[in-house]
């Protein structure tokens, strides 16, 4: 019984947030294990948020050696080149994250995300991937889906002043409080592959244009054999050509994928720190919701564009998903 209760230390530290989501949610958080891959600005923001919130443990994957460019939107790594000392991004981030909350275990896993076996993911309650290829997103999502245990899967990416989150909670049950009643709700999610396979023409007319633009770029990286994010404004003509092909192939009006938006996405390869903070904040809330079973989780895409300032939720699901 006693181990079920929060310690005095936890109660004092988490006082303000327990007042938001309650003791039960806090308890569930402290038993959760999160995996993240790709330690760029948005993921760093996300990690800060969930470590502060008090998850049980956090595992980081990113073997990229620390360099000046990698820390441009990263507040975890002291900007002292001597200190980089050949560490990987994940290792450098771990050291700082540990300090944020001594009650959270932070560790590093080495290796290529796509090479991990399915049972590796069994340890985790939620998996967040960032800065990876279309193929890897699909692959990891499928690996999570194949496990007996429910593993929440997220992708997150920031390009210039825009950001996207994808959520797959598979078959998700949670309770919703409406006035004095508690209602049990169930949501069926599509996998990333199922979602992006929905014909564009079948989508509602007002779907965020970012959705289409980001799919074009994803596809572009794939057909050109680029590393994730390894594109620039020089690629605009070929990207526009690919856009036309895709739209034609789907009999989809090109106007919905504005050239100017693609241009903007290709222009700034650097993450925009305020956008990282916003996307990392929204993602943090989502993971907390999913783990604690409190609050309506978003289904299944979120888009933010600093230019119009809107943070929009879109449901892009296969019609037969999970049936």
């Amino acid at each position: 019984m006693d181990s079920e209760e929060l310690t005095e230390q936890e109660t004092a530290l988490y006082d303000r947030q327990i007042r938001v989501w309650g003791v039960d949610a806090q308890r569930r958080l402290s038993k959760s294990h999160i995996l993240v891959s790709g330690m760029k600005g948005t993921v760093v923001e996300f990690c800060k948020n969930i470590v502060l919130a008090g998850v049980g443990s956090l595992t980081l994957i990113d073997d990229t050696p620390v360099n000046k460019e990698a820390v441009s939107a990263n507040f975890l790594i002291p900007l002292d080149e001597n200190e980089f000392g050949g560490k990987s991004l994940a290792q450098a981030c771990r050291d700082a994250l540990k300090e944020f909350n001594p009650m959270v275990g932070v560790s590093v896993e080495k290796g290529d995300l796509s090479s991990f076996e399915g049972d590796f993911f069994d340890k985790f309650s939620a998996v967040v991937v960032s800065g990876c290829s279309l193929a890897t997103k699909k692959l990891i999502n499928e690996k999570c889906r194949k496990r007996l245990k429910q593993i929440a899967f997220y992708t997150v990416d920031c390009k210039n002043s825009c950001g996207e989150i994808f959520v797959d909670l598979q078959s998700y049950t949670y309770t919703q409080k409406k006035l004095d009643e508690t209602i049990e709700c169930q949501l069926q999610y599509s996998s990333f592959e199922e979602a992006v396979s929905v014909p564009w023409k079948a989508l509602p007319r007002k779907v965020s244009k970012l959705y289409f633009a980001l799919r074009v770029l994803e596809k572009f990286e794939e057909v050109e054999g680029r590393k994730p994010g390894d594109v620039s404004i020089e690629d605009l003509p070929s990207a526009l050509k690919l856009k036309k092909e895709i739209c034609d192939g789907q009999s989809f009006n090109e106007v919905n994928v504005p050239d100017s938006l693609l241009e903007r996405l290709l222009q700034g390869n650097k993450e925009h720190p305020p956008v990282c903070a916003i996307i990392g904040g929204i993602l943090g809330q989502e993971v907390i919701k999913a783990i604690s079973g409190k609050g309506d989780p978003l289904k299944n895409f979120f888009f933010f564009d600093a230019v119009d300032g809107k943070g929009v939720i879109e449901d892009i699901s296969a019609p037969n998903s999970g049936a």
Binding site: R16, R19, P273, I278, I282, Q285, I288, A306
Partner: peptide, 27 residues
Amino acid sequence: FEAKGIAGNIVHAVATTNAIIAGLIVI
């Protein structure tokens, strides 16, 4: 716990909202 919240008028606060709002302030 509850009485303290009421008596101290403690406002509920989480890190994520503050992070989002700070991002919007900078924009």
